[in-house]
């Protein structure tokens, strides 16, 4: 059996989805942790320093390339699998599926993933592009902030957040993006472990409950960021 056979089999394809999904989840933990620094009441100093560290540290930048590759692979494989799976039933049922056994979000991973992708494009445009490519090709540049009595001179990403989240439409779109992510993770988290072969019932139950908790806590924290900026809870 060759590696190609392994990763092009139906289980192998799902394994790619599960592994890239869990890798992207590990990124979310770092992202939510760092972003939570906006709630430190120091006018964004902790957050800006943290963001600057992530933006300038070479190892993080290398992992960032892996992150983009992970996203691309997850999206590409996801659409491929969704299209393949949808093509397995040319003639659909007239009386719709019963849903006594499945949740709507577990059946809508492709749709939720698409919403997250759309959100991601907007999100990258809002923050990643100006902070990484600002000044090039006429892309709007981030402001600067001085800390440690002028010794530290770094990007003011915090100021950019405050500015972006003054627009109520953007805030609503971000909250909807987080909601899509929450439902995507509520299924994706435990499903990834099942795909990797977790069949001990005790652990499967534990992972499922942890997955629900994880998706609620992380996505709620993310959603509260634009909300608390819009309502002026952080300044």
């Amino acid at each position: 059996m060759t590696w190609k056979q392994v990763f092009t089999s139906s289980i192998g394809k799902k394994l790619v989805m599960g592994l890239t999904g869990l890798f992207l989840i590990s990124f979310l933990i770092v992202h939510v942790g760092l972003n939570a620094c906006i709630w430190v009441p120091d006018h964004g100093e902790t957050f800006n320093k943290g963001a600057n560290f992530m933006g300038t540290m070479i190892l993080v930048r290398i992992i960032e390339v892996g992150l983009f590759l992970g996203i691309l692979l997850h999206v590409y494989q996801g659409y491929l699998l969704t299209a393949q799976n949808n093509s397995r039933r040319s003639q659909n049922y007239t009386a719709g599926y019963g849903n006594k056994g499945s949740s709507w979000y577990s059946r809508s991973m492709g749709l939720l993933g698409t919403l997250i992708l759309l959100f991601l494009i907007m999100h990258i445009y809002h923050f990643w592009t100006p902070s990484r490519l600002g000044g090039m090709w006429g892309i709007h540049e981030l402001g600067e902030a001085d800390y440690n009595n002028g010794a530290v001179h770094i990007h003011n990403l915090y100021g950019e957040m405050i500015q972006v989240f003054q627009n109520p439409v953007v805030v609503i779109l971000y909250v909807l993006g987080c909601l899509s992510l929450a439902y995507h993770l509520a299924h994706g988290f435990h499903s990834a472990f099942r795909t990797m072969g977790l069949h001990n019932r005790r652990y499967a139950k534990m992972i499922r409950n942890f997955g629900y908790g994880f998706s609620i806590v992380v996505c709620l924290a993310f959603a509260m960021m634009p909300v608390s900026i819009y309502f002026g809870w952080v300044k």
């Binding site: 139906s10 799902k14 599926y97 056994g101 499945s102 577990s106 059946r107 435990h190």
Partner: peptide
């Protein structure tokens, strides 16, 4: 198709 763990089969 492949399995996406909706668990409709079990039901």
């Amino acid at each position: 198709g492949s399995c996406t763990f909706t668990m409709e089969c079990e039901a």
